[in-house]
Each structure stands twice: as C-alpha cells, then as structure tokens.
C-alpha cells in the first residue's frame, strides 16, 4: 500500500508540468474567451446604441442577449482546450507506459525490479490518470462559476441572461458526459471510463509481453471485452426481443461491466507479473 502511494506520487509528479500546462491553457483560453466575447459584445452595443442610436430592446432582439452558453456554443474558446486536454490525456494513457519502455534509459527495468507487487505499478498508473481527469473536471466546474461572475461584472443586467450550472452543462454534449446529473449516472459514466482505461492498459501489456503478436492479442482482447460488456443488450435486441425490463437490463449491464473490469485487472496482473518483457 505504502509503495503504491509512493508510485502514484511519483507518476503524478512526472506528468505534473504537462498537466499544469493543460490547466493553464484551459484557464487562459476560457478567460480570454469570456473577456474577448463579452468585451466585443459590449462595445458593439455601445456603438449601436450611442452612434447608430438603436434602442436597447432593438439591439437585444437583433443581437440576442449575452450569456455563457452563447460563448460556449458559438466559439471555440471553451470546447477547444477541453478537447485538447481530453486528447492529451488519452494519448498519455498510452504514453504513461511506453515512456518507461522506449525512453532513453531503461526505467522499465527499475520499475519491474521494485520490491512490490507489480500490479501496484499498473494500479498506480491508472490512479494517476484518474486523478488528472478528476482534477480537470473539478477545475472546469470552478471555472464555470467564476466565468459567470466575470460575465455579470462585464455585461449589464438587461443585456445578459444568467445561466445556471445545469443549463451550462446541458448546452454541450461533452459537458453532459463529463458532468452527469445524478450520482448514479456519475458512477456509471466514470465506471465505464475507468474500465476503458484498465482495458487499454491490459491491451498495452499484451503488446509489451508478446510484441507484434501481442498487438493482435490485444485487439482480440479488447474486442472480446466489448462484446462481453454488450451481451445483455445484444441479447435484448437480437434474441429475446425486448424480453427484459430496463431495470433488469441495467443490472445485467452492471454485472458484465464488472466482469470486464475484473477481467482487465486479472489479466493485467498476470501479464505484468509473469509475461512482460522489460
């Protein structure tokens, strides 16, 4: 346990600079977005009202009131850095392993020779990825709140619609996935996410164990895992034709999900303990 936590700490620190950069880019882009779009809007309003003598209500009907959702949907300032961060983290799911094997020095030797169960390396890497994801998700929530304040401060009341956090989240599909509305949904979304990370890790270990043949094993493994996960739905659609109640289907999905998750960790443990090549 002790060495697991040390490994998490170590893995976290190794990516921390890049992570800080991601956070920086996200904050910067979104704040610039809010300031720039809101500033533009306000100056356009000033120009229209004072120079072109348009009435306030005419301006609002013509240009629509300002809101955070408007910036989120209409400009790349928000979605851009989030998609970028998601992409970087997705790449890092692979890189977190390959940097140890393919780097200049043979750090994989050192990792595998640590006096601790090797599954701890696997779990520590997964934990690190999850910490990064949750960190960014939490950051985004805080950003939404502060961005609402900024908008309130920059744009006068009558030109503005104040969005609730729910409205903001509902405005964008990506947000609906990242910020589920109920606790149960939250659990489901992130359980599937975690399972996917473990599945990819185990597929990577197949490759690191059997190299070229391992790529094929990995692909077969991932395919089988996905099939197993969807077995209840496949049964429902193709064989039993809506025989199960949604609740039954849901619980069967939970069970197959757990099977896929434990399978990933169990196979991963076997590979890293017995088969992996430094």
């Amino acid at each position: 346990m002790n060495r697991y936590l040390k490994l998490v700490n170590f893995e976290f620190n190794r990516f921390f600079k890049v992570y800080l950069a991601l956070i920086g880019i996200t904050i910067l882009s979104q704040l610039i977005g809010v300031f720039y779009e809101a500033g533009n809007y306000v100056s356009k309003a000033n120009h229209s009202i004072y120079n072109q003598l348009m009435s306030k209500s005419d301006f609002i009907t013509q240009y629509q009131p300002m809101s955070l959702v408007r910036i989120i949907i209409g400009t790349p300032w928000f979605i851009g850095p989030i998609v970028f961060s998601v992409a970087v983290l997705l790449i890092y799911v692979f890189f977190i392993w390959y940097r140890d094997w393919l780097g200049k020095n043979t750090f994989s030797y050192r990792l595998l020779m640590l006096p601790t169960a090797r599954i701890n390396i696997y779990l520590a890497k997964a934990t690190t990825i999850l910490l990064f994801v949750f960190g960014l998700v939490a950051l985004q929530l805080l950003l939404f709140i502060s961005e609402c304040w900024i908008l309130q401060w920059m744009v006068p009341n009558e030109f503005r619609i104040d969005n609730s956090i729910t409205e903001i989240i509902n405005s964008e599909y990506l947000f609906r996935v990242l910020f589920p509305r109920s606790f149960l949904e939250f659990l489901l979304t992130y359980a599937i996410g975690i399972t996917a990370v473990f599945m990819i890790f185990t597929a990577i270990l197949f490759e690191r164990s059997y190299r070229i043949k391992g790529i094929i094993f990995g692909i077969i493994y991932v395919f089988l895992s996905i099939v197993i996960f969807f077995v209840p739905i496949l049964l429902q659609v193709f064989i039993f034709k809506n025989y199960f109640y949604p609740v039954e289907l849901f619980f069967m999905e939970v069970v197959t999900g757990l099977i896929v998750l434990t399978g990933a960790i169990w196979i991963g443990n076997y590979l890293i303990k017995n088969k992996v090549m430094a």
Binding site: G103, N105, Y109, L114, P115
Partner: peptide
C-alpha cells in the same frame, strides 16, 4: 518473488533511472 528484489539486484548496461 517481489521480496527477492531486496536480496538480489541487476545492474544493466544502461542506467535505470530517468535522465
């Protein structure tokens, strides 16, 4: 076993810690 790494060590021909 994992405990053996406190008892036996390997010094490969390249350094095992990060550059």
């Amino acid at each position: 076993s994992e405990k053996s790494y406190e008892k036996i060590t390997f010094i490969p021909d390249a350094i095992t810690l990060l550059p």
